[in-house]
Design a protein around this nucleic acid. Sequence first.
RNA 1: GUGCCCGUAGCUCAGUUGGAUAGAGCUUUUGAUUCCGAGUCAAACGGCCGCAGGUUCGAAUCCUGUCGGGCACACCA
Length: 562
Amino acid sequence: MVNMIEVIENNIKNAIEKSIEKAIDGGSIQIDDIPEIIIESPREKEHGDFASNIAMVLAKKARMAPIKIAGIIKESLYLEDTYIDSVEVANPGFINFKLKNDWLYDTLRQVQDKGDDYGKVNIGNGEKVQIEFISANPTGPMHIGNARGGAIGDTLSEVLKYAGYNVEKEFYVNDAGNQIAKFGKSLEARYLQLFGIDAEVPEGGYVGEDIKEHAENFKDIYGDKYVNEDEDIRRKALTDYALEKNIKRMKSDLEKFGVHFDVWFSEKGLYDNGDIDATIKYFKDSGKTYENEDALWFKATEYGVSKDEVLVRTNGIPTYFTGDVAYHRNKFVVRKFDKVIDIWGADHYGHVPRMKASMAALGLNPDNLEIIIMQLVRLIRDGKVTRMSKRKGQSFTLADLVDEVGKDAARFFFNMRSADTHFEFDLDLAVAKSNENPVYYVQYAHARICGILRQLAEEGDFIPKIEEVDFSQLKEESEIELIKKLAYFPEEISQSAKSLDPSRITKYVLELAALFHTFYNSCRVKGVEEELKKSRMILVDSTRIVIKNCLNILGISAPEKM
RNA sequence: GUGCCCGUAGCUCAGUUGGAUAGAGCUUUUGAUUCCGAGUCAAACGGCCGCAGGUUCGAAUCCUGUCGGGCACACCA
């Protein structure tokens, strides 16, 4: 649970703050209060390891030239017992800090000491977080958009666990409501058609091949038993049968994709256990509703939403919105999650403000509901955009994707870009040129390290004990840059968790792998002087650990041989 | 019409939440292995950060406007 970067930044912040206080007391700087001190790591190496712009920020308030303020701060900086080696002032007023290499050597000690746990930070404090994603309709197979949601959701969950949250992953099964009714009617039509009965799939129903298959399989089991049954009974039998099959299929497809849910939550269950009625009653009792044309409306406009929302239709059936409000009430009120994260496709964007409004109406803090809107995936095949329509049954499914490009490549790909970017998945590229996929670049780095260590072990050279290593041997630029990157891993987890953006980890591990390859080409591990070899073995092994931790978070295998 | 996302090298995208000379990968060109895994590395080429204003010491980043692409605005989910 140590974040070296955070420790150093706080050290520098404190030193600067004390220095400024001293300057204020001494009258050399005249300001009322000290603003937040920001420490950054400069792009240019000549600018040191860390830098602060505080002098420029203070310039106006203090009515002094920034360069002069920087000089004053530098003069009374207290640097004992820190990693700071030297301080320089640069135009127009930056204060640049150069560190002793000890901070890097201590980083290696930490990586070795923590192993699988290196990178873990505690910003979550064990807070109970629920993350809900995919939640695809169980009326057909999952499509490629669901795959993106799955990869992002699953990886974000792991990031949050690393960041100290108590995470529960959930899939909301829409097994009730209008779509299911249409699903049942579509199945019924296909079933009756098998007996030569002139039945039509309803307007807006499901016309995919999978519906026909369900009907045929159903017929194989039950024959004509349901042909002359009451239609409600017939539809229910067909729906129950097909839903079970579909959900089973989704679970096994997700298993192959490496996504595992802690809870599969049934929408129907909300009707059965009274949560829906309780929610409607709560809204009614608290005066948040009115009736219009026999429908029950929620006064969403009182919460800043542009229009009111229907809770119960004229036909007496609650809307999807009502179900979702009851569902979220269940998350917060019944199951007591501190924080809830939903990952939705951009086509659900319009749903966000009314959900937030309903949380407020329930007396809950809308800020505890975080909604990640994921831009839709466009599928490119033969250089053309292919449209996906689940109802027409012609979509490229999640299962197809895993079969064609593999779990590792698919998960890596989806996590290369943040959720809010439009994403084009070029199948031809991913399939035909899968060897060029960056996932191999990272996995290769891992396998390469394992290869080196394997060979050394065969020659009797094992990873040395930390106490026996003289880290000051490590001073080549490629070594320093690599260790620096390792030092940033916990900070990367922290940033990734705070911004709810798992793609940072993918970008990080790519850069880490690149730095390793650079190191490999300029420095040797085998065949160099003993002390240097020992310290490089630690460096290489530490790199292996961090790459592996990243790949674990991403849900991607870390092969020892390729 | 209203709201949201995107616009950065020929292509795909980063850009540490306002910092110093805007970076990778692919493509093209050139080079590197008697030695730990060449699925690798090094270098070169490549830019009006969509456009126009504004905010300030400082803008790809924030604000306003504008153009282009995508998505959403149901008694659907």
